[in-house]
Amino acid sequence: MLIIKNLHAEVEGKQILKGINLTVGAGEVHAIMGPNGSGKSSLASVLAGKENYEVTEGEVIFQGKNLLEMSPEVRAREGVFLAFQYPIEIPGVSNINFLKTALAEIRTHKGLPPLDAKEFLRLSKEKQKLVEFDAKLVNRSLNEGFSGGEKKRNEIFQLAMLEPALSILDETDSGLDIDALRIVSKGVNKLRSANNAFIIITHYQRLLEYIVPDFVHVLYNGRIVKSGTKELALELEEKGYDWLKEEAHENAPTI
């Protein structure tokens, strides 16, 4: 589904990704861990096409297409979804109206007609239930005045509505209490299928107790320095990142 090859990127002249290689297949869940400032969120931003992230080298192939050539909205329509670490508030734009517009754009891109009001409502009700999203929040202004947890849950609700092929969860667990974490994870688990894939960016192993990954990668200093299975996450929890940092410096390529 997603092939990242030797991806280098910089922000304002500062190199932040220094050769990422990662392959994500359909039906897989990949966790990306790493200490602060290692480039985890930058990777998410580059994949989503955020302005001022400049790719200097490498390529990203998504479902056979060159992702880096697409504008952010086309990436989204093609099926790349980013659950934001800090979801943005947009006053006056109702959550549901926004979702309706987004879904219509994505469907048009796929050559499908927009859903009529009744079908849309039915879908919205169904997904609200699936991810336990508060119906009251659906008609409120997009994220405006939402608590941190409500914002994160709204991201998962949007994910459920838009049914992307690839979902990138950028520290979705940060700022969530244990109950919210459980609900968010449950939602994600229900949305997992053989046809979609998830990249889960997180600091802590805690989230991975609920969403069990197929692969765990450790990002450090703009590179993936270690990959493994879910056991790696447990090891990190126990030992921290320092041993990997040392290893990384020893193995750092001289070029």
């Binding site: 504008s71 952010p72 934001f84 949007q158």
Partner: peptide
């Protein structure tokens, strides 16, 4: 804000 526009872009809205 650019961040507002990007957020909507990321949901498929130009």
């Amino acid at each position: 804000g650019e961040d507002q526009i990007f957020y909507l872009n990321q949901r498929g809205i130009d």
